[in-house]
């Protein structure tokens, strides 16, 4: 495929076009990803997550400076939500990163969630692969502004940075499951606001209760608008990477990820196959009517639908 060859040759427009094709679920999607797969696996993926307005985009912008200063090339995937009503979206993360727009070592792509609820979009992982194959050393993934439980990023990133702000609630919040469990590094952003020390202390206290692992997530105060604490954050990212590499954890994490991807691929194929059959043979309309009238129930109806499909013998 021409575009794939161009991407591997370093053509930015080909990269952008291929991301669109993959994101739109183009019929060529699998062919594209298959042919690029041997060129992936080299990039290191860093996830940035946190509440809306916590300063994720500004942190990404500042981190880009550090990374470029270290001579590394970077791909950025920035995710913002699509409307559940119209499907439209305002993708505004780029605003904070425009200083890097002309740097050929940086490629920034904004994406909508397009119905996904885990803080990323379905095409995020595939876009990471394209940026990886393109040759970026590092890939920064900025999630949508999250609440407590959108934790897909931890399945995608090698290092996950959770961004908190001083006014994030009392110490019970730090005990809750979900977002507080996935951090490899905590950032207390907007650390010029009152309450920073208390917030940092509460996170540290929460970490004291957890004694399972060799890596204790550092808590880094930062003021991203002024560039304070960014050096320390970059340092922490590098230390975490070093820890993962030396302990063999990185290899484990990546194998777990591949195993999950393989499972998902199989599930996806089965799902597509089943629905194709069901669409061909029958419509759901009359069943829905009957279930709505309580003449039927969805549980036995589902089993009956499946019973009518002849599965191909593998």
């Amino acid at each position: 495929m021409q575009l794939v060859t161009e991407l591997l040759g370093g053509n930015r427009r080909a990269l952008a076009r291929l991301i669109t094709l993959v994101e739109n679920g183009d019929p060529l999607k699998n062919e594209i990803l298959q042919s690029l797969y041997p060129h992936t696996g080299k990039a290191y993926v860093i996830g940035i997550t946190g509440a809306p307005g916590s300063g994720k985009s500004s942190l990404v912008d500042r981190l880009l400076q550090e990374m470029r200063g270290a001579g590394l090339t970077v791909g950025v995937v920035a995710v913002d939500p699509n409307s559940p009503f119209t499907g439209g979206a305002i993708l505004g993360d780029r605003i904070r990163m425009q200083d890097h727009a002309l740097d050929r070592g940086v490629f920034i792509r904004s994406m909508g969630t397009r119905g996904s609820l885990g803080g990323l979009s379905r095409a995020t992982r595939e876009t990471i692969q394209l940026l990886d194959a393109f040759g970026k050393d590092l890939i920064l993934v900025e999630t949508v502004g999250v609440g407590q439980s959108e934790v897909d990023i931890v399945k995608t990133a090698d290092t996950t940075v959770v961004v908190l702000t001083p006014a994030g609630g009392d110490s019970v919040q730090t005990l809750k499951a979900g977002i507080m469990e996935i951090a490899d590094i905590f950032v207390i952003n907007k650390a010029d606001l009152p309450g920073t020390e208390r917030a940092a202390a509460e996170v540290s206290a929460m970490l004291d209760l957890k004694s399972c692992c060799d890596w204790r997530p550092p808590v880094v105060p930062a003021v991203s608008t002024r560039g304070e604490g960014i050096g320390a954050l970059w340092q922490s990212v590098q230390e975490h990477r070093e820890y993962l590499e030396k302990s063999g954890r990185l290899l484990e994490i990546r194998k777990e990820r591949i195993s999950r991807e393989l499972t998902e691929q199989v599930e996806h194929l089965v799902k597509t196959m089943v629905w194709e059959k069901i669409k061909v043979r029958m419509t759901l309309g009359s069943l829905v009517e009957e279930i709505a009238l309580r003449r039927r129930d969805p549980y036995s109806a589902a089993r009956e639908l499946l019973a009518q499909i002849e599965f191909p013998v593998p």
Binding site: A16, G88, A89, I90, G92, R94, I95, L102, S110
Partner: peptide
């Protein structure tokens, strides 16, 4: 947005180069 489109908004004070490059990267 309300018409169902994805809008990439780049903010104020963009140079022509920044605009063209954003158009390219965002396809």
């Amino acid at each position: 947005r309300d018409a169902g489109m994805e809008v990439i908004y780049t903010g104020l004070h963009q140079t022509p180069e920044q605009v063209a490059e954003a158009a390219l990267q965002e396809d």
